[in-house]
Amino acid sequence: MRFERAAWWFVAPALLVIGVFFFLPVFAALLMSLTDFDIYALADLRNLRFVGLSNYVSLLQTPLFWQAFGNTLYFVVVGAIGVSLGAALLLHSRLARFKAFFRTALFAPVVTTLVAVAVIWRYLFNTRYGLLNYALGGVGIQPIDWLGDPHWAMPAIIVFAVWKNFGYNMIILLAGLQSIPEELYEAARIDGASIWRQFRYVTLPMLAPILLMVSILTIAGYFQLFAEPYVMTQGGPLQSTVSVLYLMYEEGFKWWNLGSASAVAFVLFLVIFGITALQLRYTRQGAWT
């Protein structure tokens, strides 16, 4: 049929690219994660052996994996959406002025290049010359070795990442706030509800589906943390900022343990998938297609 053939011409290039350069590698990653693919197999495929789940088993027994997992989780929980929601509420407020300007200003870090702004923040966090320690010194706090102290390195990276990313969720939540009908607030006011109760009983329930979507996207995004530790700390100090993805990069492209790197990647996928499924089920909301 003429239409059918034309239609295939429209979809074929994109499907071909996605099929060959995405679906095929994902499938291959699953297979590779069950082998001992390393630098010897890279040289000669005959050195490749099927090892079953042993990559996964040894991964789960590696302290560094749990450390990386914990670091990432820490990052996700702390770098959550509170800041975004707060900023969106402020921008949505009827009292706010110069809204377009503020919206652009707060969103600007999102479009900047991660590596470049990480370089800036590394300087802001500098123990001796950094502005942050200078400001803290003004209120009598001793200089902190932000990126060199295992206790502070992860919080420092989180502060940076929240600065970089909160604008994205802010815009999505702002759209959600704008779609809440004004009559609901009017009715609440007539009933004498305080600002807090309006927020608790009108805003939050109406925003719930979008909050859900935003938190899934945020978790998926933060698990993919990579450039921040790469530029700012190289995973250190004492591996306190190694993320799951950083671990995959080191395993795969520094040590060339491609089989075990694939297993790391798949665990990452399973975690993200699990969290998504859990959240969807927990709130009993259907897919958002």
């Binding site: 590698p25 994902v26 990653a29 590779m32 998926a220 993919q224 995959m248 795969g252 798949f266 993200i272």
Partner: peptide, 15 residues
């Protein structure tokens, strides 16, 4: 859409 792109990276590199 739920599959992170990084899952594909190792085999993609070999390909």
């Amino acid at each position: 859409l739920v599959i992170p792109g990084q899952v594909a990276m190792v085999p993609l590199f070999l390909l």
